[in-house]
């Protein structure tokens, strides 16, 4: 497999690496950049645990070729808190009991972040639509829906 240059920004930090062309973004994040917050659970884009934002769009990084992110801004769970201040979504996930084992949490947060960035005041059906690609095996989904509503200001 041919090696290629990859330029990307992750959580505001610029990186330049040489990677095999078939390397997935998840492996670049976890193994090359040692950003371990993004998780793998199914390895085929079914569970959403590996969700990150690429130029603001939520993608399954386990099936997203790293080279597709060349030149892009990538945001992972490590980039949600700014200057030690938790994002309102992070705070709400804790407060509403939306975190149990927490293995799906990074992906849930990033999908929810993409939603709120586009629609700051989603109703319940919009939240369900935005998170339908994210499996949670511990909490069920009620606490997660409550958390997204709370972070959005809960106006709906």
């Amino acid at each position: 497999m041919s090696e290629q240059r990859l330029h990307l920004r992750v959580n505001g930090q610029a990186y330049e690496l040489t990677i095999p062309a078939d390397r997935f973004l998840l492996d670049v994040l976890r193994d090359d950049l040692e950003l371990l917050g993004t998780k793998e659970a199914c390895d085929e884009g079914e569970c959403g645990a590996c969700t990150v934002l690429v130029d603001g769009r939520a993608v399954d990084s386990c099936i997203f070729l790293a080279l597709q992110a060349d030149g892009a801004d990538v945001r992972t769970v490590e980039g949600l808190a700014v200057a030690g201040q938790l994002d309102p979504l992070q705070r709400a996930f804790i407060d509403e009991g939306a975190v149990q084992c927490g293995y799906c949490t990074a992906g849930m947060l990033m999908s929810a972040k993409a939603l709120l960035d586009e629609n700051p005041d989603p109703d319940e059906s919009q939240i369900r639509a935005a998170l339908e690609g994210n499996l949670c095996r511990c909490t069920g989904y009620d606490a997660i829906i409550r958390a997204v509503k709370a972070a959005s200001g809960g106006r709906s």
């Binding site: 769970v77 975190v99 293995y103 949490t105």
Partner: peptide
Amino acid sequence: QSTVRRDGVAKVTGQFAYGVD
């Protein structure tokens, strides 16, 4: 009382170490 779990911040910031990590 519904006190808040101790591992919550680590889990929402991606710092919590699972076996895979």
